[in-house]
Each structure stands twice: as structure tokens, then as C-alpha cells.
């Protein structure tokens, strides 16, 4: 498939994630939309890795160009898993203190 299709698909998913962060007040949904944005970027990285592998394959049949990008996606998933565990712990802590999942409650952090 042409790479433009993948770029536009990833952009659409990324912008849906941004709209979700902007329009929802439930902190868990906001967090899920951040995961959606991470996944859009992952999809784009994999598509680009296949694009560059296809270009390099024309000259060298044993090339491993592109495996770096896929490992990058793997490390993004690793960091995302760690981020989710800490983030959900923070959300549970906030819910225990305020009995709400509304992000607007967080502006009370300043006092």
C-alpha cells in the first residue's frame, strides 16, 4: 500500500486521541486517549520501517534495514506499560482523596 495511506490513518488516530484528551473530563478516558496516540505513532513507525526495508532490499538482498524501527516500537510498548502502571496508581490515589475522576479537581493541586 502507498505510505500516504498509513500516514493519514495514523494521523487520524492521533487526532482522535488529541480530541479525546481535549473533550473528555474523565481522567481514565483521557489516559486511554494517550494510549491511542502512542499506538498511532507505533503503527506509523512500523509502516515506515517496511517502506525503508523495501527500498534497501532492492540493492541488498540480506539487509536488515528497518528492524531498528520495530525494536523502537517494542521499547515504546515497554515504556507505555511502565507508564500505565504508575499513572493508574496516581489515578487511584487521586480517587481515594477526592472521590472523583474529574480532571478539573486536579487544579486543587496548587494548594
Amino acid at each position: 500500500m502507498p505510505i500516504q495511506y498509513y500516514i493519514i490513518l495514523s494521523l487520524a488516530l492521533f487526532c482522535i486521541g488529541i480530541v479525546g484528551v481535549l473533550v473528555r473530563r474523565n481522567v481514565i478516558i483521557v489516559f486511554m486517549c494517550i494510549e491511542l496516540m502512542l499506538n498511532a505513532v507505533n503503527l506509523l513507525l512500523v509502516a515506515f520501517s517496511k517502506m525503508h526495508h523495501g527500498i534497501a532490499y532492492l540493492t541488498d538482498k540480506t539487509t536488515t534495514t528497518g528492524s531498528d524501527a520495530q525494536l523502537f516500537v517494542f521499547f515504546i510498548m515497554v515504556v507505555a506499560a511502565a507508564e500505565v502502571s504508575v499513572g493508574l496508581a496516581i489515578i487511584v490515589m487521586m480517587y481515594r482523596n477526592t472521590h472523583s475522576v474529574d480532571v478539573n479537581f486536579l487544579n486543587r493541586l496548587k494548594n
Partner: peptide, 29 residues
């Protein structure tokens, strides 16, 4: 994206290429 000329006629190869297989990624990892 539509204006970018660098990515014109570039395709992402589908269902061919073996860089995504677990053996190659494991070696690189």
C-alpha cells in the same frame, strides 16, 4: 502529507520481507 513530494510513489511492502519475524528481531535486540 499530500504536498510532500519525498514520499510520492513510496510503498510500504505488504506480507513480504522478514525483518518483523521474531528471529531477526531477537538477534538485533
Amino acid at each position: 502529507v499530500r504536498q510532500a513530494i519525498e514520499i510520492n510513489n513510496k510503498v510500504a511492502e505488504m506480507k513480504v520481507g522478514d525483518i518483523g519475524l521474531i528471529g531477526n528481531l531477537g538477534k538485533a535486540l
